[in-house]
């Protein structure tokens, strides 16, 4: 009798890349529900559009690179990239904006750099930054969240018409600045933080509507950390980095620098900490390195928000730290079993 010879171990944990990716998708659901509640159907339309374009682009690239379609398309990593990007796009972003963003992410940032596991930069953030730099006007046109007195709630049909360029009504009355935008422009006009924060746009903590989405992403993110689908060191590092530097500036001059809780709870800080920065392919891979990597992102976010040209800086901060990750890994190797205590 002859038997197959295969190398050990002969039992494996029931896990797969696809399982990890699907768990990321599940974890995004609470945040997505909150966003749809406050910003309407547009978020959902963007998600569907981005998913379809991502899967088509992924399949085309896999065929061109002669990779097995079933296992590589089935890992749902393209869907994760699509969702991570779509959630960050304005709810009424024109369709071509989503398409260009997804194609930049999947074709350029992912496959032209070698495909899953080889890309040095976070694909979703590459797509986002391409759009932010190329189409700043479209990228900053956000809807006024539900409950802030917008004159009209868009139906699904109107949303589709707006996204695909046949809007029957003017959208100008429905759009407004995001809380971080308001903070940035009004600080530039010489107003104090206290005066700015009186605007209803800021809600309870850090932005009406936005803060609920943040709560949703926090819940999903904590679950990801709990099931070990995301490394805890990265969100802890990033949020502490942001909190420490924000607290420092706030203590020095509370009228010119926003309080740390506003920074932590607004914009893409929590979303970025749990969903963007934790992309394992582009992050640091050592336990200590992940803390440093996260802290670096947190500090860069503050610097870009406070002193840079954009209201939020998560995408730029992540990309900047992506390229630092290999070096961080080199200098943060763990102490090997039996090596002298350092």
């Amino acid at each position: 009798m002859r038997f197959r010879t295969v190398t050990s171990p002969h039992v494996l944990l029931e896990t797969s890349v696809g399982l990890i990716m699907r768990r990321v998708l599940y974890a995004m659901l609470p945040g997505i529900v909150a966003l749809i509640w406050f910003f309407g159907w547009g978020i959902g339309v963007n998600l569907v559009l981005a998913t379809v374009v991502a899967l088509l682009a992924e399949a085309a690239m896999l065929v061109m690179r002669s990779k097995p379609l079933a296992s590589h398309l089935g890992d749902t990593s393209a869907v994760v990239t699509a969702w991570l990007l779509a959630v960050a796009l304005p709810p009424l972003a024109p369709w071509w904006l989503t398409v260009i963003g997804v194609l930049s992410a999947i074709v350029v940032a992912k496959h032209l750099y070698g495909g899953l596991g080889y890309n040095p930069f976070n694909p979703a953030m590459v797509g986002y930054v391409v759009l932010l730099i190329s189409f700043p006007r479209e990228m900053s046109t956000w809807l006024i969240p539900h409950g802030l007195g917008q004159p009209h709630t868009l139906t699904l049909l109107e949303t589709l018409q707006a996204i695909f360029g046949t809007a029957p009504i003017s959208l100008d009355a429905l759009t407004g600045a995001t809380p971080l935008d308001v903070l940035r422009t009004q600080l530039g006009l010489g107003l104090s933080v206290t005066e700015i924060r009186n605007s209803p746009v800021f809600g309870i903590v850090a932005g009406h509507g936005w803060e609920w989405a943040t709560l949703g992403f926090l819940a999903g993110g904590l679950w990801l950390v709990y099931i070990r689908a995301a490394a805890w060191q990265i969100p802890v590092g990033m949020l502490s980095g942001l909190a420490v530097i924000a607290t420092g500036f706030y203590l020095v001059d509370p009228q010119h620098y926003a309080p740390p809780w506003l920074h932590l709870w607004s914009g893409a800080a929590v979303y970025g900490a749990f969903f963007i920065a934790t992309d394992p392919v582009t992050a640091s891979a050592t336990p200590r390195g992940r803390l440093i990597y996260g802290a670096g992102i947190g500090m860069l976010v503050y610097i870009i928000r406070g002193f840079g040209g954009y209201p939020d800086g998560v995408a730029f901060a992540v990309l900047l730290m992506n390229i630092a990750a290999p070096t961080i890994d080199l200098y943060t190797q763990p102490r090997v079993f039996g090596a002298r205590q350092r």
Partner: peptide
């Protein structure tokens, strides 16, 4: 008793 061979995917540096 054993896990049959699975398709090998690229390393995603998850750190598990």
């Amino acid at each position: 008793e054993l896990t049959l061979e699975q398709p090998v995917m690229p390393c995603i540096r998850c750190g598990d």
